[in-house]
Design a protein around this nucleic acid. Structure first.
Length: 586
RNA sequence: GCCCCGAUAGCUCAGCUGGAUAGAGCGCAUCCCUCCUAAGGAUGAAGUCGUAGGUUCGACUCCUACUCGGGGCACCA
């Protein structure tokens, strides 16, 4: 409808230009917006204000001329000029009810668009290190990424959701050593656990599995390795140096095969745990990409070679550096350390090269806000590899703070005292968690109120929206009418004439544009706010006594059933995009 | 020091790529079930849109400086 109106205006402008009645040729991108205020009609256009200068005449006068030159259109009831020169469009009354027919026909497809049909987008998100269970900090990225995926699919994109598994590197070595040490403790060895090792209980669990399967096979008495060690942090030493030494000892004592058994068991256990967690959180991936695979297939080497060939790397202090300052970075970055191992950055470069080679039209990375310093360097690398950095979009998600009883809950990963995503899900449920995580703009800090998320009242936005859906189902149950019944789809929507009904009709017609706006801006909160508005309109309608749906006037009753059925479809479609359920009963 | 995000009603936040009297929820005050789930609804009070300039016919929205929060600046990932 907006497009049709925009066309009317463009036509008017074209006519003026070709008639030469205005000295300067007018040139504008016509924007038609929904009127905020009912007294301003359904749609408004400010083009006369924009073009006033070009046309060298007062905006109101220009608006008059445009209006006079506008072609007739059956959908428009009337056009008014208002305020400083706005053109206000009123849509034919009977057209408002048309939206119900299209919703009932399209059902789950209502609101979907094919704007980006044929385009491939990849979204990489969460990608937490497989060194422990997901915690609530990862939850927001997971919810955001999954929802963005749904939204982009809704506007036609072919979406691939990917998790980059950091199954190589130092963190994994720390994990393997941590497991081995716990294993030793299970073998009744006594020593002080390193301060920088992974402390969580899940490490014990993995160690227990290995101990059950292999008995004492990998036991080495404490005195075999507890010598020539630097001091740990609590003793005034460096915890990093200390743990690195422990890793070397672990590798030496276990030899390659034994070490691999510990690493693989830890990785497999934790990765499966993460996968389960995400599945239960309604987050599904199309691909799990292994960092290790980049190493074993020599893709890291290959990527570094390209950088070198393009003249963007050099050797200094026995390390290989990337000349990222050529692309605006504040300093050059190390690719290969003096000790010969490549940095995380190096494999990440290879990973991004691989993504580009897989032929996506668009790449989206979702990172925690703490990684923002990394953006310049990865974009620099992409450019140095000869790829277009503009195809890569990095969305930063700010932190979420949990509140309970008005108190902020603290959390830290390494200490093992964190709230896991699993605990959160068990406490507030998947629906509330997913909804709350995307309720706010992603670049805004999020206060996640656990008490509110679990409360069963209108204060809780999830319940509020879900309840609207349940209420509608309940009315149909009371009516004893099947939603699919022909009497509903054939009902005459012109029966719907009061303010509550009109408000709902208008809102329902706005669903598609809300979906595309949310997708366009990668902003699920737009959809969330919209659904709250729809729920509000429904509850408001419901509470008015004269809006009683179940009544003797069959024509009006059926029209209202049609209205709320369409509302149910829209709420369900919207909640589905958020991976939140639409209960029939509550 | 440099970089990113934020600052809008007492609180938590919207405000659509500048537009017509700045919106919602909570909280507060008053009210609404012989009525389809009160897990709800209605009405009202409440804002110098962080500060100071600038661009514009028009600025919460764009630009500059500053103030205050949060985060980041590794041969960690």
């Amino acid at each position: 409808m907006q497009d049709q109106i925009a066309k009317l205006i463009s036509t008017a402008i074209d006519r003026l230009n070709s008639a030469g009645s205005i000295s300067a040729g007018l040139n504008a991108n016509v924007q038609v917006t929904r009127s905020k205020d009912k007294t301003h009609g359904d749609f408004a256009c400010n083009v006369a204000l924009q073009l006033a200068k070009q046309a060298q005449m007062p905006p109101r006068e220009l608006a008059e001329i445009l209006l006079a030159n506008m072609p007739e259109a059956p959908i428009v009831a009337k056009i008014e000029i208002a305020g400083p020169g706005f053109l206000n469009f009123y849509i034919q009354e009977n057209l408002h009810g048309e939206v119900l027919n299209s919703i009932l026909q399209q059902q789950a497809n209502y609101g979907l668009a094919n704007t980006y049909a044929g385009k491939k987008v990849q979204i990489e998100f969460v990608s937490a290190n497989p060194t422990g269970p997901l915690h609530v900090g990862h939850g927001r990225g997971a919810a955001y990424g999954a929802t963005i995926g749904n939204l982009l699919a809704a506007v036609g994109y072919d979406v691939q959701r990917e998790y980059y598994v950091n199954d190589a590197g130092r963190q994994i070595d720390i994990l393997s050593a941590s497991v081995w040490l716990r294993y030793l403790e299970l073998c009744d060895e006594k020593f002080t656990f390193p301060s920088n090792a992974y402390q969580g209980d899940y490490v014990w669990d993995i160690a227990a599995t290995l101990h059950r399967e292999h008995g004492d096979k990998y036991l080495h008495a404490t005195k075999e390795w507890m010598f020539d060690l630097p001091s740990d942090e609590p003793q005034g030493g460096d915890k990093e140096i200390y743990i690195d030494t422990i890793i070397q000892k672990t590798k030496a004592l276990l030899d390659e095969d034994g070490y691999e058994i510990f690493t693989n068991c830890a990785l497999e256990t934790i990765t499966n745990d993460i996968k389960d967690d995400l599945e239960l959180f309604g987050v599904h991936y199309d691909n799990w990409f292994s960092e290790k695979s980049l190493v074993t297939s020599n893709k890291v080497q290959a990527a570094l070679k390209i950088l070198d060939e393009n003249g963007y790397s050099y050797i200094k202090d026995q390390a290989v550096w990337f000349r990222s300052t050529d692309f605006g970075d504040e300093k050059d970055r190390v690719l290969v350390r003096a000790n010969g191992t490549h940095t995380y950055f190096a494999s990440d470069i290879a990973y991004h090269l691989d993504k580009y080679q897989r032929g996506f039209d668009r790449l989206i990375n979702i990172w925690g806000a703490d990684h923002h310093g990394y953006i310049t360097r990865i974009k620099a690398a992409v450019e140095a590899l000869g790829k277009d950095p503009k195809a890569l979009q990095i969305q930063l998600v700010q932190f979420a703070n949990l509140y309970k009883g008005g108190e902020k809950l603290a959390m830290s990963t390494r200490s093992g005292e964190f709230v896991t995503l699993r605990e959160l899900r068990k406490q507030v449920g998947k629906d509330a968690a997913r909804f709350f995580y995307v309720m706010r703009k992603h670049e805004q800090h999020l206060d996640f109120d656990l008490d509110l998320a679990t409360s069963q009242s209108k204060d809780n936005p999830v319940y509020y929206v879900q309840y609207a859906h349940a209420r509608i189902c309940s009315i149909f149950e009371q009516a004893g009418v099947d939603m699919q019944d022909k009497s509903i789809s054939d009902a005459d929507s012109e029966q719907l004439s009061n303010e509550h009904e009109k408000t709902i009709l208008k809102l329902l017609s706005q669903y598609p544009e809300n979906v595309s706006a949310a997708a366009e801006k990668l902003s699920p909160h737009i959809l969330v706010n919209y659904l709250r508005e729809v729920a509000n309109a429904l509850h408001s309608f419901y509470n008015e006594k004269e809006n009683q749906v179940l009544m003797d006037d069959i024509a009006l009753r059926n029209a209202r059933l049609k209205l709320i059925y369409a509302t149910k479809i829209v709420i369900n479609n919207g909640l589905t995009l958020l991976d939140v359920s639409s209960p029939q009963k509550m």
